[in-house]
Structures are given as structure tokens and as C-alpha cells.
């Protein structure tokens, strides 16, 4: 997912550079692109894959079922990010029954999030097309007509497209 996002960031900036072709403005767009790329990389690195977490929690549950003591199983499971709403294995009243209940709840929430994510995929695709379509059509138009659009207009459109790109990226992210 992170590599896809990074590819998207790079392709969009390349399109913008081709569209603007405005000397120092190119440097500014390039600089903004590098900052965005670093941010995407950092976000991807910091996020926790929910499926991996589910796997870790399931293996922790298996250890408990096999008869391991909660503290011992917890030390061996090496869970990356134990959900905040869960009762901690080191808590006094923690038991297998409690763990199974909270695990089922976690699974239910994860399934719901996946379902919603799948529903949102169509909108994301539409937005993805709309991010590139204007740049592509502008470049095609310029190529076919052979007339050079004024620099100020190219820069204005570039900045507008970039702003829209950031607004759309923000909206695509789940809160």
C-alpha cells in the first residue's frame, strides 16, 4: 500500500512538472513532492497492519488455550500494538474467557472496517481517475493544438490541481 501511494505521489508530481515547465516553479513543485514522499513513507512505516495484529492476537489466544499462564504467553507472543480497549494480560482479573470475548469484538470491528473500505474503493478509484485526467487532457490538448499556454495560467492550474490533490488525499484517509 505504501509503495502504491509513493508511486502515485511520484507520477502526479511528474505530470505537474510536465504541465508547468516553469523554471523556478519546477523546483518548488519538486521540493513539495519530495516532502510529500517523505511524509507518505513515514506514515506507511508508522502504521500497523491490522491483519498482522490479528494474527499475533490469535497466536496469543492459542497459547492461552494451550494452558500457558497469561503473563508467560504475553511475553512469548510479542504483540506489536495491543489494542487500547483490551484488558491487559497482566491485569488481575484477566482470563481466557475475557480474552476470547474481546478478541471476537476486535474481529467484528475489523470485518466492519474491511467492508466499509471495500465500499469506499469505488469512490477512491473515481478520485484516482480525476486526479490524473485533467493533467493528461491538458497535456494532450497542448500537444495536439501545438499552441503554448501562458506560463501564469499553467502555474495557476498546477497550484490548483496540487491543492485539490491534497484535499482529496485528506478526505480519502479514514478518521
Amino acid at each position: 500500500m505504501t509503495s502504491l501511494k509513493m508511486l502515485e505521489t511520484v507520477t502526479f508530481r511528474l505530470g505537474l512538472l510536465l504541465l508547468v515547465r516553469g523554471g523556478w516553479w519546477n523546483v518548488l513543485f519538486l521540493l513539495e513532492g519530495i516532502i510529500s514522499l517523505v511524509n507518505v513513507y513515514k506514515e506507511g512505516k508508522g502504521s500497523i497492519d491490522q491483519r498482522v495484529l490479528l494474527e499475533q492476537l490469535a497466536s496469543f489466544g492459542n497459547r492461552l488455550r494451550e494452558g500457558d499462564a497469561p503473563v508467560h504467553a504475553w511475553e512469548r507472543a510479542n504483540v506489536q500494538s495491543y489494542p487500547r480497549e483490551f484488558i491487559h494480560p497482566e491485569a488481575e482479573h484477566f482470563s481466557l474467557e475475557i480474552y476470547e470475548k474481546q478478541f471476537r469484538l476486535f474481529e467484528k470491528k475489523l470485518l466492519l472496517e474491511e467492508e466499509l473500505d471495500a465500499e469506499f474503493a469505488a469512490s477512491r478509484l473515481r478520485m484516482g481517475i480525476m486526479k490524473y485526467l485533467p493533467i493528461l487532457s491538458m497535456l494532450m490538448l497542448e500537444g495536439f493544438s501545438g499552441r503554448i499556454t501562458p506560463l501564469a495560467l499553467r502555474i495557476g492550474c498546477g497550484v490548483g490541481l496540487l491543492l485539490n490533490y491534497h484535499v482529496a488525499t485528506r478526505l480519502e484517509k479514514p478518521s
Binding site: P134, L141, A168
Partner: peptide, 17 residues
């Protein structure tokens, strides 16, 4: 909400043309 940046992109395209 995602319709907003989409429409704005269309508007930019029209302005450019």
C-alpha cells in the same frame, strides 16, 4: 465530500481550455 475536489479539478480543466 470527495465530489468537491473532483468538481474543482474539472473547473480547472475548463479554465485551462
Amino acid at each position: 465530500l470527495i465530489l468537491l475536489p473532483m468538481s474543482a479539478n474539472m473547473l480547472i480543466m475548463i479554465i485551462y481550455v
